[in-house]
Write a protein that binds this DNA or RNA. Structure first.
Lengths: 211, 211, 211, 211
DNA sequence: CATGAATGAGCCTTCATTCAT
DNA sequence: AATGAATGAAGGCTCATTCAT
């Protein structure tokens, strides 16, 4: 449904330019951190001039927001997958951990910057919380509660259990970002070990014999 | 023959001043982030002049390091507890999670600053990794391996399992720092839920019947 | 095919700006001394903003180096003259002193700044020594030695004699810079008096009769 | 004639303290240059506290003035010697150059700082000019004029000739301060070469045969 | 008088942002 | 719409000077 007047084309160009800037900013921020990175270097990396950035973004912070939004899209898309997934909890969890962790790990350097900034920037934090964390938690809780009712999983405090899982994912990744070599070098094994732990726990029980 | 102004007194004064500055810096850094925060505001918050800061710290980075060291002390003190602990794994884990999480949660604002900066500052990261993470991991692995040998816990990949636990602790706290209200308002319940999860897992097994 | 804004034009603009800054810096440094002078005042004197300075110079030191280089150019240009000069020693010396002294005296304020800082800044000193003093001395010695061999001048210690001449030139100029009014008001007569002295000395001899 | 009340003693103590500070400042300034040197280091070198300096000197500049005055005293005392000296001009000049140059060369590091600062500090410059240069020039001119009248030296422009001699002395020393190795390593030979040059000049004349 | 911790003005430098071209 | 030179508000840090002890 192409609009009359070249607005459609313009929009496309604008979106492309924004993408180009966000792309460059992502690289630069990842390497230097948000505060240490300069708009000059973002411009140089994007192959444009400094002034041009300000034709597409209000200010430097807005670029970071755009990066966050882009990250959010990725994450939301990932979640879409999960919904239509195997009804077997164990398979579901394994798949979820694998997808989610590898997805974040791949863009870990962006994640590093965004997380770092989020921790000390209330606006960014709020945005992430409302756009990503809370919706994801709601869906997860709902999903989990129905499984509890069906006796598929043990009875627990659903909200905190969900936080525990999300936290475990997040935390292991953060450990990796902090330089833990074990995680860094064996990142593809991590989801399965974590899944095993979350399914069976540490306890010596008969539940473990099938593993 | 006590000195007219014993070095002891001076030392005390110096330590008090440093503490005062670290205290103020923690507050300011937590609110604005390390790089956004200004020495001027740290000084104002501490109720001293900007120049005075530099009588007690080499530079702004050194204040951050002092904050990190303070955190390390807290963490090391927490670790002392672990050593002489119950030989029962479940009790041990519960106790460990409770102590560790509440300890960090209490100084969560310091933790927020340090983590934020660590993610993006290689030197700080290295320091934390070598001084805190790695020693803790080594002790934990050793402890855990001996329990595995004694059949007290399930056989798993010890290094990654330890990272999973540490990650879960870390990640839940980070979620809290990001503003998750569930964790924020029920922080004292979190360790037990997490412990339960790590002991028994989600699975419906006979292992769960004793719970 | 001339470029839309040829690099040539840009280069010209850049050179003009640098010149403008060096010009202003010379004035300010001469009045206050290098370290007492502020970049703020240099900027104000140049009629630009402080930040602009740093678009053209690495730092404050680089401005001083540019001033030194400018002086060197002046001096090197002066040396060019010497080469194709009269073979008669007396004429040569007179011409040399006249040119050299008036050349330095004209840019005496630059010289004031550079000398002042050089006395106290080893790096600058080294640079000047290697780039200006030593090459000049070598040429002068060589020239002088061949004249000695040809019996054109008295036998003396060539290296120290050259230093004496160079020193005399330098010293008289420094006296002028220190405010000596005689030198200040009769600067054009100085070279000839000095030349006469260096040719004939103070002694009452027959050598003086041809004067 | 000791005064009643301990004022005499006090004066002595005060003078000693001032001397102690000037001594230390001389060392520190010589090493770092006036602006680069800090009062803290002067105090430490003098073995006193920073505050004490301000009981004896108005400010940092005043210390430099005191150094200059001390240098002037030395120079004036040296000049006293000259007056009652051999009436033979050649001997007089040789003696003068030797004394004057070695005297300055010995305290060359102070001289370096004072000269450096004088070049860009009008007050200091004025002081030196009035207290040292001008009186010395007047005496020298007078002395020289009478010798000219007696036919002992060639007729020349007395004021500029005196400036030439003073300049030669000053300039050779400055060349040495700038790092010229020839002067640095043969500083004791310099006065005689310079004297020879000033007496006989470069010309090949019979005047040179007696040398 | 001596001390030295505290001060705060002011320095050099950076960098996000603007705007004339 | 693109440019990039110019801007100027801060920022971290230094250091001469003061003053309570």
């Amino acid at each position: 449904m192409p609009e009359p007047r070249g607005d459609g084309v313009r929009d496309l160009v604008v979106r492309a330019r924004r993408e180009q800037i966000v792309e460059a900013a992502t690289r630069v921020f990842a390497e230097k951190g948000f505060r240490r990175a300069t708009t000059r270097e973002v411009a140089r990396t994007a192959g444009i001039s400094e002034g041009t950035i300000y034709n597409y973004f209000e200010d430097k912070d807005a670029i970071l927001m755009a990066i966050l939004d882009r990250l959010n899209e990725t994450e939301r898309r990932a979640e879409d997958f999960e919904e239509g997934m195997s009804t077997d909890f164990r398979g579901f969890l394994e798949e979820y951990l694998r997808r989610r962790m590898s997805s974040i790990w791949e863009s870990r350097e962006v994640f590093r910057v965004v997380l770092s900034e989020m921790l000390v920037n209330a606006e960014l934090r709020e945005r992430y919380l409302r756009q990503v964390v809370e919706p994801a938690m709601r869906i997860a809780e709902e999903n989990f509660r129905s499984r509890m009712e069906q006796g598929e999983v043990r009875q627990t405090d659903a909200p905190l259990a969900m936080r525990s899982v999300a936290g475990a994912v997040l935390g292991v990744l953060v450990l990796g970002l902090l330089g833990d070599e074990e995680i860094g070098s064996r990142s593809d094994e991590v989801p399965d070990v974590l899944a095993g732990l979350l399914i069976h726990g540490f306890d010596v029980t008969e539940g473990g014999r099938n593993e």
